[in-house]
Design a binder for these strands. Structure first.
Lengths: 173, 173
DNA sequence: TAAAATTGGTTTCAATTGTAACCACTGCTG
DNA sequence: CAGCAGTGGTTACAATTGAAACCAATTTTA
């Protein structure tokens, strides 16, 4: 019920704002901008929560989130799973090891690889951080209807694919 | 259906998380994570385009986007319009002045303020950048149906509001 | 009307992040 | 096998970003 001002999607300007040049860009309606603001707000809030309670950065938390589900991964495996790059992983891992949240052991079969796992302490933290994360997620999702949640899911998927295409081939024009 | 019976506002944690291990968290379904990945992909692609063609960073571009629509703003006005902070604005402005994309003049009424405007060159660049930005936006939106575009608009609005609430009051728990 | 507090904006310094170079090891090719 | 390309991971260094201190002009207030 709160939702509607009329259909705000299309591009009609009957603006009161006199003499708006036809091709001005309205930043506040520009999707890349809005995504960026939204994502930053969300990430900052969560980053604060994690760092205050567990002394964890977001990259480090991501690594833990993956290791909690999938034991015995290497750094390279983490790169695959997290959309983070090698360097970020390497730094996150070294922090986590310093905190005794994860353990690192050599892979005997391939002495370049290191097998990573949550330590008992790390598992502990993981078990406490996951509900916190879920709380944030639920709170966020709680502002949407069940229907909207479904829509959002599929919309993000589509946008993600398109943006990925850009990275691969660039914007075609 | 799944996620809520608790009205999102309330503060009840009656969770029997005593002996029960929390569910694993699936990072790839976690909204904050997905937003972050999506936003980064989009921003990076666009940042590359801008910097390659106009030697502009995203913050600088944002400042131009606003000044193109609203002349005679001060840095403080820009802070209001862009969700960027003072420092970022100050840096963007100084780059833009160095490039001769904008002009800065003293406000006689208040000698702390500086009135900013696009220079003729800046207006020129603006007129070329806006269509490029719109092309990206259209391409992104092109992956959605008209209906989805409307849904996305209102969903973002809601999420934005919720995330803003966090910033103000923190997650209530 | 002289402090004191506020506002506009910049500078400084530390922390974060990205890029490239790098070392150690593996695996292939000849 | 020797040599060389590729992989796993870290290090070094530059660029970006954020937080706090700061200067100058303005407003408040006692």
């Amino acid at each position: 019920m709160t939702t509607d001002n009329s259909n705000s999607s299309s591009t009609e300007f009957s603006d009161p704002i006199d003499a708006v040049r036809p091709d001005d860009l309205r930043l506040e309606k520009f999707l890349p901008y809005r995504l960026s603001v939204l994502s930053n707000r969300v990430s900052n809030a969560i980053a604060d929560a994690y760092s205050a309670r567990f002394d964890l950065t977001i990259p480090a938390w991501r690594v833990m989130a993956i290791l909690g589900r999938f034991p015995n991964l290497s750094a390279a495996d983490l790169v695959e799973q997290t959309a983070m790059d090698k360097v970020a992983i390497s730094r996150a891992v070294s922090i986590l090891i310093k905190n005794d949240y994860i353990t690192r052991s050599e892979d005997l079969a391939d002495r370049r690889r290191q097998v990573l796992n949550l330590s008992p302490l790390g598992r502990d933290v993981y078990d406490r951080i996951v509900p916190l994360a879920q709380q944030y997620e639920n709170d966020l999702m709680g502002s949407l209807s069940a229907e909207e949640r479904g829509q959002l899911d599929s919309i993000i998927e589509k946008l993600m694919t398109r943006a990925q295409d850009w990275a691969n081939r660039g914007l075609i024009d």
